[in-house]
């Protein structure tokens, strides 16, 4: 299987998947409620910072980190909701502002809390514990890849079907979908779009926080200024591809995470390190292109694209 399927590579892929998947959920839920969360990148950065800051300040270990990440990112999402939903400011503008605030705010907070700049890493920081899965653990390859991941990965994988079920089978899910595609209909039925979108954003903030915690605490626990590295924006792209199929987020996140991880490991087979800044983006563009290429080859493409054709 060699390099491309090595257990190490795939183990890291799944580790990266967990963070990306939760951020995608955090973007997906509000998207179904009709809000494009352009501030996910910023919320995730706050989440990463919260994970580290909470650990250092409370000395509470990994659990404190997890809670800190969720709290920080939820606050950021609530700020987004307050400005974009309650303040009725264009969500694109709000998102860009939130990303500025996250980059600047974490930098200022680093200076205030840790009297320094840049990366925060202290020996006392505790990474998320690794969980060994019984039975799976002893399967060759699979044991190395799937077992021994953080709780966040297992939670992310379990959340995928739960999110889909919730959207399809519950009152809240139905309301969310109606608000997202026909807010006037929701209003006519006595449901408040603003309230639904607020809830979606806040719950989304919790998801994004879990993603941030995974990013900051999965391997070497640390915070560095540019660590989210566009994952919040990538999540936006994945969510737009997934559209009305939430389960699709899982394979999409794994695919992107693979190429992301691959980029950093290509130097092992003699390719330049700088490919790590190119490969993930080529991958995401290819992933974005797949649906439109598939559309072109579908027999009913014309009908889907333009309704009925006219023959005078």
């Amino acid at each position: 299987m060699g390099f491309w399927f090595s257990a190490d590579l795939w183990q890291l892929t799944l580790q990266a998947t967990a963070a990306l998947l939760f951020v995608s959920f955090g973007v997906y839920l509000p998207m179904r409620a009709g809000v494009l969360v352009l501030g996910a990148e910023g919320a995730m950065l706050f989440g990463c910072f919260g994970a580290i800051a909470a650990q250092v300040l409370t000395d509470g270990g990994a659990l404190a980190g997890l809670l800190g990440a969720v709290a920080a990112s939820t606050c950021a999402s609530a700020l987004f909701a307050a400005v974009a939903i309650s303040g009725r400011v264009n969500p694109i503008v709000t998102g860009i502002a939130l990303n500025f605030i996250a980059v600047g705010g974490t930098s200022v907070l680093t200076a205030v809390l840790f009297a320094g700049e840049g990366t925060i890493v202290t020996p006392s920081l505790e990474p998320l514990p690794r969980i060994e899965l019984p039975i799976v653990e002893s399967v060759p390859w699979l044991g190395d890849v799937v077992s021994g991941q953080t709780i966040v990965l297992y939670a992310a994988v379990l959340t995928t079907p739960l999110l889909a079920l919730w959207l399809n089978r519950t009152r809240g899910g139905l309301t969310t979908r109606v608000v997202g595609s026909a807010p006037a209909v929701a209003v006519a039925a006595g449901r408040s779009p603003a309230r639904t979108q607020w809830i979606a954003l806040v719950v989304g903030g919790v998801f994004i926080g879990l993603g941030g915690a995974q990013l900051a605490l999965a391997s070497a626990a640390q915070f560095s200024p540019g660590m989210t590295n566009a994952r919040g924006f990538i999540a936006l792209a994945l969510v737009l591809i997934a559209a009305q199929r939430p389960w699709l987020l899982l394979p999409l996140a794994i695919t992107f995470a693979y190429f992301d991880t691959l980029g950093f490991n290509l130097q092992n087979i003699g390719l330049p390190t700088e490919l790590s800044g190119v490969l993930p983006y080529v991958a995401i563009i290819a992933m974005l292109a797949v649906p439109s290429i598939a559309r072109r080859f579908r027999p009913d493409a014309a009908a889907e694209a333009g309704g009925s054709r006219v023959v005078p």
């Binding site: 566009a230 792209a237 490919l275 800044g277 190119v278 983006y281 563009i285």
Partner: peptide, 29 residues
């Protein structure tokens, strides 16, 4: 690309900012 993939321009351009950075680094190096 935004037209071809039907992805919002704002999302694609945000990602392209990082892509351009990586690409420029790769080409330069």
């Amino acid at each position: 690309l935004a037209v071809a993939t039907r992805v919002q321009l704002v999302v694609l351009t945000l990602i392209a900012n990082y892509f351009a950075d990586g690409l420029a680094r790769f080409i330069t190096r």
